[in-house]
Amino acid sequence: MMSEFNNRVAAQRDILRVVNRQKWREELFGLASGAIDRWRNANQLDEGAELLILVRRAADKLFFLANKSQEQITEEYRMLSGEISNLIEQIRLAAMDHGARA
Rank of each mutant, 00 (worst) to 15 (best):
A95F: 04
M96I: 11
E4V: 10
L65E: 10
D97G: 09
G34T: 04
T74A: 14
N43Q: 03
W39K: 00
S85A: 14
E75A: 07
A102M: 10
D14C: 11
S81E: 07
L51Q: 09
L54Q: 12
L16W: 05
A32T: 09
N43M: 02
Q22M: 07
Y77P: 00
R38I: 05
N86Q: 14
E71C: 03
E83N: 04
F29N: 09
A49E: 12
E50V: 10
L62V: 01
N7Q: 15
G99P: 05
A100Y: 11
L65D: 03
L65G: 03
A35D: 11
S69V: 08
S85G: 11
E27V: 15
Q44Y: 06
I73K: 14
A32E: 09
M1G: 03
D14L: 12
F64D: 13
K23D: 07
F63T: 05
R56C: 00
L54Y: 13
E4G: 02
R92I: 00
R38Q: 09
Q72A: 15
N67C: 02
N67D: 12
A42R: 10
A10E: 06
N67M: 08
R21N: 12
I53H: 10
G48M: 11
L65P: 00
E4N: 06
R8Q: 12
I73V: 08
R38A: 12
G48V: 02
I84T: 01
E50P: 02
I73C: 12
M96P: 00
S3R: 03
I73G: 02
R25N: 15
L52C: 03
R8T: 10
A66P: 01
R21P: 04
A94M: 04
A42Y: 06
N6Q: 12
A94V: 10
W39S: 00
A11Y: 08
M1T: 04
D37P: 00
L51R: 01
V9N: 07
E71I: 06
A32Q: 10
G48N: 14
I88C: 06
R40L: 03
N20W: 00
N86G: 15
S69N: 04
M1C: 00
N7H: 06
L93D: 15
V55T: 05
R56N: 08
F5M: 04
I88Y: 10
F64C: 08
R101D: 12
